[in-house]
Each structure stands twice: as structure tokens, then as C-alpha cells.
Amino acid sequence: MKTDAGLKLDAYLPYRLSVASNAVSGLIARAYQDRFGLTVPQWRLICVLAEDGALTQGQIVARTVMDKVTVSRAAQGLLRRHLVARTAHHADQRSHVLTLSSQGERLYAEIAPLALAYEQALIEGLSADDVEHLKRLLLKLQARATELVDADPPG
């Protein structure tokens, strides 16, 4: 059934964002999986711990906007590989703090240049102003989407 209702999938911004995100994530995921045996959530967790230091899983959920189950599975996989260490939280015994192990720090130091090389390859042909503008727009879209989660549906 063909309709002229106005919605054209290829012009629909949420679809375009999703397709672009999937393409970029898929490209990078293959590199992390093939070379280092990591999933994208595991890589994100390693990166956040390298940048921010010790964090609880709840803090990682908030920082990465990944769901609790994804963070938990990523953490378990990294714990099994001794890439992160887990200690009891000093104030909340039900919670644990994750930190990169020395092995995890070495892996991060090896992967970070590869991640930056992929970023450079992806933005090749874009000006520095284009890249900064894109980053600002993505942050605005993310903030607006967060606002809309608790709002009444539009229309």
C-alpha cells in the first residue's frame, strides 16, 4: 500500500540517525571484536573507566546511557578476562566499584589510537567546523530526546 501521508523513511531524521549509528558501530565493532575480542559495550566501559577512573555500574549506566543489563554483561565479560577489577563500595555494600586493571589499562592504550584512527577516517572530507557543528547538534538532539522521555507524546 503506497501512501502520501508525508512520512518518507529516508528523510525521517530518527531513521537516518539510527542507520548512521548502526553503520559506524558495526564498522568499529568488527575491529574491536576481531582484534581484541571486545563488544562495543565492553569497549565503552573500558573507555569510561580509563577517562573517569573508578565508577559504580550505576554511574556507568548514567555516563554511557546503556541499560543496566548491557553494562552488567559487559562488566562480567571484562571481569572474566581480568580487564577490570571489582571492589565493594565503601558506602553501599550492595554496590560495587569497577576500575581498570593494569591489563585493562594496557589494552586501552593499544585500542585508543585505533579508535582515533577510525574517527579520522570517518570524518575525512569534513571541515573542523563541520565536525564541531555535528557534535553540537548531536548533543542537542540527545538532550531533547532525554527531555521528551518524560513528556507527553507529541500530537
Rank of each mutant, 00 (worst) to 15 (best):
Q42T: 00
A5R: 09
Q59C: 04
A20E: 09
H89M: 06
A121H: 12
I111W: 02
D150G: 12
I60E: 02
K140D: 09
A121W: 08
T3Y: 02
A62N: 14
L79F: 04
A54C: 07
R35G: 06
S18G: 11
T70K: 00
V71W: 04
A145I: 07
G37Y: 06
L139S: 10
T39F: 03
W43S: 11
S25N: 09
R16F: 03
H82G: 06
D52I: 08
D67F: 10
T146A: 14
S95C: 07
L49E: 04
S72P: 02
L126H: 10
L139V: 11
H96V: 12
T39Q: 01
S101M: 04
I123W: 08
L139E: 08
A85M: 15
D92M: 14
G77H: 00
L138K: 13
A62Q: 11
C47I: 09
T87V: 15
L83Q: 01
V61T: 15
H82Y: 10
S127A: 05
K68P: 03
H89Q: 05
L107N: 05
S25D: 12
A121T: 09
N22G: 08
H133I: 07
L13E: 11
W43T: 13
I46Y: 00
N22H: 11
L79K: 00
Q142I: 15
P154R: 06
L114D: 05
K135Y: 00
Q57T: 06
E51P: 00
A117N: 10
C47E: 09
R73Q: 12
R44T: 10
A11N: 08
G155T: 14
G155A: 14
L139F: 07
L141N: 04
V97H: 06
E132M: 02
H89N: 14
V71R: 03
L138R: 13
L126M: 08
G6H: 00
V71K: 00
I111T: 02
A74K: 01
L107H: 00
P153K: 13
L79G: 08
L17S: 13
D4Y: 14
A117V: 03
Q59L: 04
L138W: 06
P154C: 14
I46S: 01
L98P: 05
K140Q: 13
S102P: 07
L17D: 14
L83P: 02
G37K: 01
A20G: 15
